[in-house]
Design a protein around this nucleic acid. Sequence first.
DNA 1: CATGAATGAGCCTTCATTCAT
DNA 2: CATGAATGAAGGCTCATTCAT
Lengths: 223, 223, 223, 223
Amino acid sequence: MFKSFETAICNASNETTAKRLLEAAGEIFAEYGYRAATVRQICEKAGANVAAVNYHFGDKEGLYMAVLRFVPDAHTEKYPLHGGLNPDATAEQKLRAYVQSLLGRIFDEGRPGWHTKIIAREMNEPTRSLDTLLEEFARPLHQELASIVRDLLGSRATDEGVRLCTLSVISQCVYYHHARSVIRRLYPEQRFGPEDIARLADHIARFSLGALKEFAQQKEAAS
Amino acid sequence: MFKSFETAICNASNETTAKRLLEAAGEIFAEYGYRAATVRQICEKAGANVAAVNYHFGDKEGLYMAVLRFVPDAHTEKYPLHGGLNPDATAEQKLRAYVQSLLGRIFDEGRPGWHTKIIAREMNEPTRSLDTLLEEFARPLHQELASIVRDLLGSRATDEGVRLCTLSVISQCVYYHHARSVIRRLYPEQRFGPEDIARLADHIARFSLGALKEFAQQKEAAS
Amino acid sequence: MFKSFETAICNASNETTAKRLLEAAGEIFAEYGYRAATVRQICEKAGANVAAVNYHFGDKEGLYMAVLRFVPDAHTEKYPLHGGLNPDATAEQKLRAYVQSLLGRIFDEGRPGWHTKIIAREMNEPTRSLDTLLEEFARPLHQELASIVRDLLGSRATDEGVRLCTLSVISQCVYYHHARSVIRRLYPEQRFGPEDIARLADHIARFSLGALKEFAQQKEAAS
Amino acid sequence: MFKSFETAICNASNETTAKRLLEAAGEIFAEYGYRAATVRQICEKAGANVAAVNYHFGDKEGLYMAVLRFVPDAHTEKYPLHGGLNPDATAEQKLRAYVQSLLGRIFDEGRPGWHTKIIAREMNEPTRSLDTLLEEFARPLHQELASIVRDLLGSRATDEGVRLCTLSVISQCVYYHHARSVIRRLYPEQRFGPEDIARLADHIARFSLGALKEFAQQKEAAS
DNA sequence: CATGAATGAGCCTTCATTCAT
DNA sequence: CATGAATGAAGGCTCATTCAT
């Protein structure tokens, strides 16, 4: 019925309309959410006609899905899952790298940031694409961290223990996106430049490592 | 121009329309967010006429503001800031109580829960009323926790240290609301009955206490 | 959700919007068909806002259905099913009355005419309401004629024989509506004033009676 | 401005786009009507580009007109006006042949059927091309039947008498197309296989012949 | 005090058409 | 000769708001 997304963005001769649409949509969906964003707004920003969305992506939802598939490409290049670490790194190093990478994505203002922001929106206002998003992005992200956490907790850790600790670590990172409007107002002195983010990552990693170490010791002592 | 909010809810002789409107609005705003909630939906639930919102609260935004001011009343009764603890409790006890109370509100299905949920929504889609909310609710909440954290970190803790740890603790709690749709899909085996929430609170408290203890020791050792 | 049709047209204090909408819709649906008719067009004719349709009838289809239910009221008053005949009339008299009544409705320019025209449109472009229309109007119409035809054919008539003859009679009447554009161009000398219609009815009745008489005789002779 | 129709279909070397377009359009216009049929739908079925219609036929209406001129070619081959009868056949034989031929076209699923169906649609929703259609197809059809009817009515028949009887005969046939949706629902037991159609034709012919015979006798008796 | 009725702006989508290659 | 891409007008519908009683 309409040009598929892949076809549309492959003949990227010169900034095609489809691509401009994706860029604009990514930014606007991230900022306003799926519902509040209007097709007109997106088209205007992309310098395209309102009907272009229908032509290239079928409808608003098609455009949204396309954004969700398109953005990650640039995304995973910049923020590889394993943070560029070699597999021999210690669990502690891995955790530090993980936190750093996640925080980096969260604070990234550019295209990769859209993805995170859109996921954050999906959490509050799930659309039909949440399930896809979940399986493709959220689950691997959680699982990777879970395996690191399991290493740090030691062999005695229960599944529930691992799960709760994993959530504890992730939550500390994601909160900086989720609660950004509040945090920035409550703590205006806090800056978010690259080094600040590094310090943030350091804090979260240390906080979590400390907690996990305690847990591991308690487990051991209990035995 | 229209009945002021105060007038409207003060003559609460018998379940006035204004009050029913507030109840309905609280529930619906919490569930759908400010934008997605429709005036008709709220009025229908309240058994009131469509025009009632405009009559009593001026417009949709007026109703929203009124909800934000009205709901907390029931709220603070059920979840007093200090968790009902006497001031002599240890910092650890206070932290445990704090987490328990916050989590309780977050999982509360009833009226007090609305407030937390609405604040969570404001974080993603701030409206003009965010500033009010911030000063009236978020700041005291943060400050209370900050003072507990400061106690636990010891006198050497820097302001930034306290701030970051405070956020680390809060984030773990709030995440269960914020990411509820993801968590429930990712970990369908996780239940959220009263005892489960208690276990959750226990985990977060232990995780945080462990981390804070490590921090305190490191600080000490560093001196 | 929206005022039901009955409610809407009952408080017909002074030409309510709902009623004006029905009038306008009847005329326009009859002239252009369901699809081609636009809500805007109807509202303009009715001097109402576009949203009025949504308010009073839910949506375009709701308005259409309401028209289908509303128009017949005036309809059956003017053209009672049994043509006003007493039950003792001969079958031949009944057939004449039937044809006269059906043709009358078909040529009626006023409100009752809409109904016939709309049914004619449904035949070419069925909508979801065809089934209702069928059971409520078309079937009784067919059955009444069928019983008259059965009388005329005599007791030996088969069900199929009755059915085919019934269709033969009805078709001659309906054709004047269905093919009106062609007939008027092909035979411009043909007028359609009241007496002309009476002559038409007389022709169709005689044509049909002649045919039925032949059939009845053949049946008899065959036995 | 654009390739004329003649040019387009004359170089019918190998299934040209223009020809495929005509085929597809014929089918779709017959099924959905002029308005409801979409250019995209037709082009898709024809395996052609959306712009092809404009290129070859100027616009949608041009395509429609072209279909009306093109389709009959195949049409008259299969259903010659005089039903393949030799001119010496009796009037009764001619009438039977006429009815058979007309019904055949009406129930024909293939290309010739399109034409009849499109004419049927034109009757309800006349377009600008109705006049052409009328003169080229409807008038000859009517005149042929009129001459048969005149034979059967005898020399005393008035012009009006012939006209009305002609319409009576034609209407019985066309009704099966026009009211197909109703008939099929009202009489689901009625089948429309080849023999059924033959029986239908037989009925209509006998019904009409019976009526005409009566008319002729009455005329005679009246003299 | 309150409401049923009405409004206008705006949204998503569809469609025939045209443009540039 | 033909096409992929783009366009603008229009359609149905929703929503917060206002009017008149």
